[in-house]
Write a protein that binds this DNA or RNA. Structure first.
Lengths: 230, 230, 230, 230
DNA sequence: TATGAATGAGGGTTCATTCAT
DNA sequence: CATGAATGAACCCTCATTCAT
């Protein structure tokens, strides 16, 4: 069918252009190649850390030449920073939704904390945190960026939620900033730290996460909950 | 000339013995030299981190030769591990005493937690943690050793204290292992993490520590305290 | 079919010609583009020298693409050689005229030598000489070309002038080739060498040039001048 | 026999110390190894110039490891500078003596200039000059050092000689600094420049040197000689 | 036994050249 | 035909480790 066929082609072309078609060449601007490099870098950095990772390894793993990497990223540090930014975004995305869904305060906090700790203790996230920490002496802004947009943003979401629930009379929290940090520390802090130090070789089991989160939420509500929290 | 010759030899030996201090020298067994090497290594590692520290720097700082270091420590990694073991011991020493001193449960926990977080967030300890984490991908057992004998041992002390106070009726804790981890996370976890990521450029102020610890102990006692806890 | 085919070809050619602006485009034959490349190369080479100049810099400075440069010049070395040839021509052009103008032998030689040494010691010419010398181990023919068409051609002009003046009885020169080299060395050699070695950071002042040239011409005429030379 | 045996050993030790025995190890202080490195560097630098010479090539040519080179010389530039200093010293040594020997002014100047030009146009000296010139844009002090201690020192010797002979009435030179530069330029300048540019592929023949020097001295004495100069 | 000079693989980065577009 | 993104060898230099003394 000619007409449709024509439309199909137009559509395809439009999509390609929208996708920044792989054949369009602008130095250091091809997003596919950029992701390819970041993927290779991720595999190498996650395995051995920043210092022990060599640009040669990344070259091999990413399947691009060394020169190409330097077109997209000015230095090893810049490449690392871009990688961390990308990963951090993925880690902490879509946490907010869990606070919007219906349910009691206990249910909501449990749901939120469970998702948070599951992510924070996943293998790649643990490795990412290790790396960021490992270089934070030399690249301090990287640690800040990771922390601010990561744990801190999670706490920001919580604070807003606490404000809301305090107004509704379901919680009674004098300082929501402190409270959100406490919930974070209680539920996610310990397991994350255990993973980061390598004490837990694998991510914690669902049961362990549940136990930890439940204990944490118990304690949190014992302190801040009103009789209507459950 | 016999007499003179004998004197010469005696003199020489005496000098050697004097030089050798009271210790018998067996390869890699002189504890003074071992400490000397570790002291030098500490200065260098803390300043620049594991990867950036060169054995030449350590050699210079320790005042011993390269070969000697390799007699005492088989590799750079082994040296680093030995250093971390020594430092960890120092960091968590004498915490137990704070639980033995008199005072209410609240006072005791506040005292313990304040000392703990002060140590955990001191500059050298933060650096040590960063380094351990940074290399834990390559040296996994190092992180475990640090964690087990560090945070975990602190929790062990707490658990024993909680058992005692639960028996005395001052606390009501169903699972003291969980409770000790919770207290640790509430009081020390957040500030330590902030330091490790470099968000806090300097150790937290006494006021911030006090606020954090007080909030944590408040919450802890809201959950586990009996009417007799204060 | 001939007719149609012919038309097709004509059409195609017409389009090509239209596209190609007034110049016929044959690979590497557009003299304007060639000069454009050489101009860019000159700026870069003079600034940083042969080895430190990157083809990327030249590309940027010349405003043409990398591939285009390689169409016009087979390699970096070839490009450099072409540049030097062009510059050399400019450096030693219009020297001949100074020998044609009227004036005594002393005046003429002084005029000629002053112009010569001024040019030889100008910043770009000094840099060009340095570069040629610096690569002459790797590109021996380049040095020859520069020398033959440069200093040597100047000497050629002088020789002819000496022949003329000897016939006129104003000079008495048994070997004009030797004499022209001597005048060159006396007047231009020393200052040029000082500039090339960097002992003179800037080109010599007019006064220094005058002094040098005057001393040189003095000596020259003391040897070769007749009583009628002045 | 004890006594003799003892003497033998002492003697051996003394000799070792005097020779700076190859086995005496002080980092970067073994003069034999230092010369070995310089010899290797000389071969490589002279062949391809500064930029094109790679430290790996020098490593191979010198028969020492890369690390060792960097113990003796902090960088490629420092190594190059040391090499040039060594060569320059050798080039211009023992020129002074030729001015002390007996003979007429003409004979003395001819002797001095012949030796000077022979050295300046020898293959290694030509190559050394090329290298120094090639890098003088980036290492200006190197060119100065070479020039000052080289050509300039030769001119210094000449000036002193001219002063002496002027006092003796054999020469009549108003400005001996200018005169010495003139003699240098007349006799050595042209041939040296021809060699440096590669126009003369091999050092000039003895005949060519003699012709050049004779013409130069002729002219020099025509200008500055008194009737008693020969 | 303690020393430290020597090793050489490997570090991050640059750049002349090529070739698909 | 012009373009410039991609290549990858080669650059200078560092440093964990060894071993002759």
């Amino acid at each position: 069918m000619p007409a449709l066929s024509k439309n199909d082609q137009s559509l395809k072309k439009a999509v390609e252009v929208a996708d920044a078609a792989p054949n369009r060449r602008v130095a250091g601007q091809d997003p596919v190649k950029r992701q390819q490099i970041l993927d290779g870098a991720k595999r190498v950095f996650l395995c051995v850390g920043f210092d022990a990772a060599s640009m040669n390894d990344i070259t091999r793993e990413a399947g691009v030449s060394k020169g190409t990497i330097y077109v997209y990223f000015g230095s090893k540090e810049e490449l690392f920073g871009a990688l961390i930014d990308r990963e951090r975004t993925a880690i902490f995305s879509s946490l907010a939704e869990t606070l919007e869904e219906e349910g009691s305060v206990r249910e909501t906090l449990t749901r939120f904390a469970t998702l948070l700790v599951t992510r924070m203790t996943s293998v790649p996230v643990v490795r990412a945190q290790r790396m960021v920490i490992g270089v934070s002496e030399r690249m301090p802004e990287l640690g800040c960026r990771f922390y601010d947009a990561g744990p801190d943003s999670a706490k920001g979401l919580l604070s807003a939620y606490f404000d809301r629930k305090t107004k509704e009379g379901l919680l009674d929290i004098p300082d929501t900033a402190i409270a959100s940090r406490q919930l974070f520390d209680l539920c996610a802090g310990g397991l994350t730290r255990a993973c980061i130090f390598g004490v837990l070789e694998a991510p914690p089991s669902e049961a362990l996460i549940a136990e930890t989160v439940d204990s944490g939420v118990d304690m949190f509500l014992a302190r801040y909950g009103t009789h209507r929290a459950d």
